[in-house]
């Protein structure tokens, strides 16, 4: 029996789902997974942060101790020291990445022969695993047989600085690797921003004989600013969480010279197993990350508002 087109349609609609059913079916799995794996743990660790508990003593149930964990953490000078260290690290590394990345994007915006290949080559560090990179740079930084000191001009073995052995240098060693790894990311975002600037703005500026300096400050920078800020936001959040790289490179040492806050949290939670206290620390970190992201998002919105 031959069906007409309308009949086929009716058969389909009877057998197939309504739009509402599709919405539920398509969205529900995502929401359920996110709630189970993010929201539930978040509340659970909030509860744990008010208790005395250790995961290696599962027989001892969490004992409610109120704000004691927070009190203890916030009055511990070492915690403040780790936070200041992390702050210094984040500001320095993100600022350098923004400068290097934006500079590279400016240089790469006009296509030349082989520019695609160069862009791809510059992006290679992003694809690598941070912990492995950290480990490998350990070899590169080695004062005796590493190439880093040779490349910066110390040709006699062991005459150059021991990058990972001295407290203040070790932080710079991490910053150098982080900048090497993530500047290309800033570059990529800025590049896509630069390519979206309409040509007529520059044409008009050229006709008015505006200087390149003027063009940069009045056209290029304001137009790229939103994307540059997004890149900086992503990088700030990530830098605050830096863990893999440090674990590979210094493991927090020498002493606790590079014990960034995420590394400290790992040590508290998974080597000392002070679960309740670490949950409280995790919450303090979370609040700071949210506050910083909020600041960024606000300034981003302000810049966007000016552009429109």
């Amino acid at each position: 029996m031959q069906l007409t087109r309308t009949q086929t349609a009716r058969v389909h609609s009877r057998r197939s789902l309504t739009d509402v059913q599709i919405q539920v079916l398509f969205i529900a799995p995502t929401i359920i997974l996110l709630v189970l794996w993010n929201i539930f743990p978040l509340f659970y660790s909030l509860y744990l942060s008010f208790t005395e508990f250790s995961v290696i003593k599962p027989d001892v149930p969490p004992a409610w101790i109120g704000l004691q964990n927070y009190n203890k953490l916030l009055s511990d000078p070492r915690i403040w020291q780790y936070f200041t260290l992390t702050g210094r690290y984040v500001v320095t590394t993100v600022a350098l990445q923004a400068i290097v990345g934006f500079g590279l994007a400016l240089f790469l915006r006009e296509r030349f022969k082989g520019s695609g290949l160069i862009t791809t080559l510059i992006l290679i560090p992003i694809m690598m695993s941070p912990v492995v990179i950290g480990l490998f740079w350990k070899l590169i930084y080695n004062p005796a047989f590493g190439i880093f000191n040779y490349l910066i001009g110390y040709s006699v073995p062991n005459s150059g600085p021991d990058w990972l052995g001295e407290g203040s240098r070790a932080l710079w060693a991490i910053i150098i690797v982080d900048v090497w790894m993530w500047s290309p990311f800033v570059m990529l975002l800025c590049l896509s921003g630069l390519k979206a600037i309409p040509d007529y703005l520059y044409e008009a500026a050229a006709i008015d004989r505006a200087s390149p300096w003027f063009q940069f400050w009045r056209i290029t920078l304001p137009q790229v600013a939103p994307l540059l800020l997004i890149a900086i936001l992503f990088r700030t959040i990530e830098a605050f969480k830096t863990f893999d790289l440090v674990m590979g490179l210094t493991g927090g040492g020498p002493g606790d010279a590079t014990e960034l806050i995420a590394v400290h949290l790992y040590r508290a939670a998974f080597t000392r197993f002070t679960t309740g206290e670490s949950s409280a620390l995790a919450y303090i970190i979370l609040v700071i990350v949210i506050a910083v992201s909020n600041l960024y998002v606000r300034s981003l919105n302000r810049i966007r508002g000016e552009n429109h």
């Binding site: 794996w37 993010n38 743990p41 660790s45 744990l48 995420a262 939670a269 949950s279 995790a282 970190i285």
Partner: peptide, 9 residues
């Protein structure tokens, strides 16, 4: 969310 925050729970 920093992964370390949700790791413990």
């Amino acid at each position: 969310l920093p992964p370390v925050v949700v790791t413990i729970p």
